[in-house]
Nucleic acid binder design. Structure first.
Lengths: 204, 204
DNA sequence: ACTTATTGTTCTCCATAGCGAACCATGTTA
DNA sequence: TAACATGGTTCGCTATGGAGAACAATAAGT
């Protein structure tokens, strides 16, 4: 391998690093504030640059959101790996863990919902998010397979995740309950769905 | 301190790093070949870039030479520090050490001579070299003071260094002697100058 | 309803860097 | 002496990355 590309590679690394600085600034702000209250000018100020410069590195604000979301997903993966290593866990444990993660990382949940619901995202950012979602579902499915065994079907992973997401979405800002009560109630709902399949107590 | 300058600082560091790559390539070639046989195109090839690009970082070839020389001087300083730390050394030891350094690092000696003799160096490079020379003499004088004591005069440092440089210059390519013989003879000359002040064996 | 702010994004301008080709002076050769 | 080669340096062009100002659309205030 010739060193002919050393300079060019260096340049590439430098660019990645600068991109990371911007992304870190954004993630920091997303973590501390409601994400749709964080504007491009805030991110620029945090990173110490001009708003226009951000567009040299990211095509749109939504693209930054997607990247931030991807970082969160990697954190989730780490967390899941730790769970699976430390002890024999059940589907119930997993469900509760997912609920807790969303409640402890509301910005992440908000961003996810943003991509899942908003019709104003550019096609590029939407594509990016779709890839991320696919990656996440795949990863999550792998973990579940380790609990459920070989003959596990992806459909169940989809159902599992979607139902929990729905629980959080529906009751996150439910009035009349404090944070802790809401959390416990979501746990109960998640367990109910898992054990009873969300079936109503009436004849089929 | 605001992080407003983070990006700019980063850029600056990156530039320094790229400059270092070029300089390292040059130093490597200078070490392995006669320095005036190393052209800009060689350095460019070694660094994996175009010759023209070098001029984005260095104003002239002589400027690169000066920088390379400066690196060598730092190595010399390290070597001297080691000598001074490990044992009680005399002026004779120092003289022999300097001779040996020049013989072991001929490219360094050549570069030094280039700046000291050539009339074709640009004023900028010449200035740079003068600063380097001044720095070196100062540094060297400090070390000598540690041996010679407080009431040491710079003139003696100048005389000391100049005479040894002259010895090496005069006998480096002296015909009829192999490397080892030449080295030994230079040692003898250096000692003679130090102990007898280069005085001829005749009445003053 | 009409201004005013806010916000994501684009525009324009400028400095930095990279390269291939040319320039130019010097040394070499036929 | 004329052609050629060599080697340091410059030129012209292009791509990248930075900033401030402007744009367009939406939200807010009166």
């Amino acid at each position: 391998m010739k060193k002919r590309s050393l300079f060019k590679n260096l340049r590439q690394n430098e660019r990645e690093l600068r991109k990371t600085i911007i992304l870190d600034a954004a993630v920091k702000l997303f973590r501390d504030n409601v994400f749709n209250g964080v504007g491009m000018r805030d991110i620029a100020a945090e990173a110490g640059i001009s708003p226009a410069t951000i567009y040299r590195y990211f095509p749109s604000r939504d693209d930054i959101l997607a990247e931030a979301l991807l970082q969160d997903i990697n954190k989730i993966e780490d967390r899941l790996d730790n769970m699976l290593k430390n002890r024999q866990i059940t589907a119930k444990d997993l469900a509760i863990a997912v609920v807790d993660y969303f409640l402890d990382n509301e910005p992440t949940f908000h961003m996810m919902c943003h991509f899942l619901t908003s019709g104003t995202v550019t096609p590029e950012a939407k594509n990016k998010f779709n890839l991320i979602q696919e990656y996440f579902i795949n990863m999550f499915n792998m973990k579940i397979k380790m609990i459920a065994g070989k003959n596990h079907d992806v459909v169940h992973t989809h159902a599992f995740f979607a139902s929990i997401a729905g629980v959080v979405l529906t009751f996150l800002h439910y009035p009349g309950l404090n944070k802790q009560k809401k959390r416990e109630y979501m746990h109960r709902l998640a367990l109910s769905i898992i054990t009873e399949g969300g079936r109503l107590p009436m004849p089929d």
